[in-house]
Write a protein that binds this DNA or RNA. Structure first.
Lengths: 187, 187
DNA sequence: CAATAACTTGCGTGTCACGCACTATTTGCG
DNA sequence: CGCAAATAGTGCGTGACACGCAAGTTATTG
């Protein structure tokens, strides 16, 4: 196992993000301004100053969990068998990453559908592009534009899939929506 | 022409964004904190309070011009001849939109490569997705996931193209980079 | 030429991000 | 095993900021 320090750090980080997201969900998309830094910090059991050592805005704290998940995109692809063609490897890797477990609807709604969170939400998804592009480059041996464009397109498709999964209309399992969205990318 | 009011409004909006971006470029990516609201407002010839009626953060003001450009993505596609296949229509529309004129390197560098601006920069590009998706849906007659995924993938590719165009290494014209990036999307 | 709507501006306020200095805990080395 | 160095948590103080409110100014409409 790693450092005690590293584990504690990760633990407080998670405590802050989950507290922030929970409080935000409680207030609903309209009352984001009511989620004060003090509330987040005390709900997470740290001082406001410490909260600020981890995140430099409420938005970042709220979306931090999503960002952590996205960052694992590269490893998710590497976990797929080497023989698999790229498109199915990517698809199944994303399904594995984003449906284990099935995401919390309320949390994702808050993150994706609150206007003031839009910038940070995009950032949270986009941070996955670089590690994913690296993993793609490793797998295909290519370099330059293509791996990056592919990664960016995949992440963008996931984002659209999330939006669709949140619409009350078609409540298919998230995995299905992801697969259908990625089919569109792989023409 | 439209309202005097509407034109004035647009003029002050542009005055603020150009002033904000210019000041930010002057300070360089490191000194974003030194670009004060007062400076932006007075450089744009408005009161700080008025600046705040148009934008609710410095980041938004700095990236406002990029956002305005992205918003025209739908119209850019509609301006392409109806007979054109979708992929070339999209490609040429994006080339038309983003290389008329050739963008300012320093400004784009600032927007795309400054960490504190990342969220707003993503937002600035992403606002083009919805109008572009609508234009795609009109052109293809399809609805649902596909137009949205296509639009999101195209915008993502443009973003990657911009990043590559900014690297000192390959200084090809931006139009070339866009075309090569979109080729990757249309597998 | 009123009556109304839209825009600008100054002021006041509550919140926030962060630098700095200090303490406590963990780590790694002699 | 203890001791120095690195690392994390915290309180305080400060400068900046976003925004509500209300008053003044300019455009629009009939």
């Amino acid at each position: 196992m790693t450092d005690l320090r590293a584990r504690n750090r990760q633990a407080t980080r998670e405590a802050i993000t989950t507290a922030a997201l929970r409080l935000a969900v409680e207030q609903g998309p309209g009352g984001l301004a009511l989620v004060r830094v003090n509330d987040i910090a005390s709900a997470a059991g740290v001082s406001p100053r410490t909260y600020n050592n981890y995140f430099s805005s409420r938005e970042e704290a709220i979306c931090g969990g999503q960002a952590d998940q996205s960052r694992r995109a590269g490893d998710a692809l590497r976990a797929r068998p080497a023989g698999e063609p790229l498109d199915v490897a990517l698809t199944e890797a994303m399904v594995d990453l984003f449906t284990d477990p099935e995401p919390d609807r309320a949390g994702l709604r808050m993150i994706m559908l609150t206007p003031e969170l839009e910038g940070e939400a995009l950032r949270a998804f986009t941070v996955g592009e670089t590690p994913l592009a690296e993993a793609i480059a490793e797998r295909t041996g290519e370099s330059g534009l293509r791996p990056e464009v592919t990664a960016a397109a995949v992440v963008a498709a996931i984002r659209v899939a999330g939006r669709h999964w949140l619409t009350p209309a078609a409540n298919r399992p998230f995995a299905d929506v992801i697969r259908r969205a990625l089919e569109c990318v792989f023409t």
